[in-house]
Amino acid sequence: MPMSANDIEALIKRHIPDAEVTIRDLAGDGDHYAATVISETFRGKTRLQQHQLVYAALKAEMGGELHALALQTGTPKGA
């Protein structure tokens, strides 16, 4: 069963509470998404470490309900 964008956002925010999350369904099938996650939590971390934090939040779903996620991360601008 496909995973909804709202479910993905909720999982990310559960683990990264200050995250601003934008989700796009790339194929219209509920299996292939693109996510942009902005969080102060990422400040001082490498891009790899940022992605690892997001994937850790989704680890139970990756490869199951959530097949693919294109990920962009960053810190808030002007902070």
Rank of each mutant, 00 (worst) to 15 (best):
M62P: 03
G63P: 05
V54H: 02
L48F: 03
Q72W: 01
A57V: 02
I16W: 01
Q49L: 11
A34N: 02
D29T: 10
A10P: 01
L66E: 01
M1E: 10
R14Q: 14
G74N: 04
M62L: 13
V37D: 06
H51Y: 00
A5P: 10
R24L: 10
Q72K: 12
V54K: 01
A68Y: 00
E40N: 09
D7Q: 15
T22R: 14
A35P: 01
A34H: 04
E65R: 13
R14M: 14
A60Q: 15
V37N: 05
P17T: 10
A27R: 00
M1T: 10
G28C: 07
T22N: 12
I16V: 12
D25W: 01
G28R: 05
I8V: 09
S4L: 12
D18K: 12
L66F: 00
I23V: 03
G63Q: 11
A70H: 09
S39R: 04
R43A: 15
H67R: 03
Y55R: 02
P2N: 14
T73P: 00
R43G: 03
L48C: 04
D25H: 02
D31W: 11
A70E: 12
V54P: 03
Q72Y: 04
G28Y: 06
Q52V: 07
G44H: 08
V21T: 08
G28H: 05
T75M: 05
A35E: 00
P2C: 15
E9V: 10
K59E: 15
T75D: 05
Q52R: 07
E61H: 08
A10C: 07
Y33P: 05
Y33K: 11
A57Q: 10
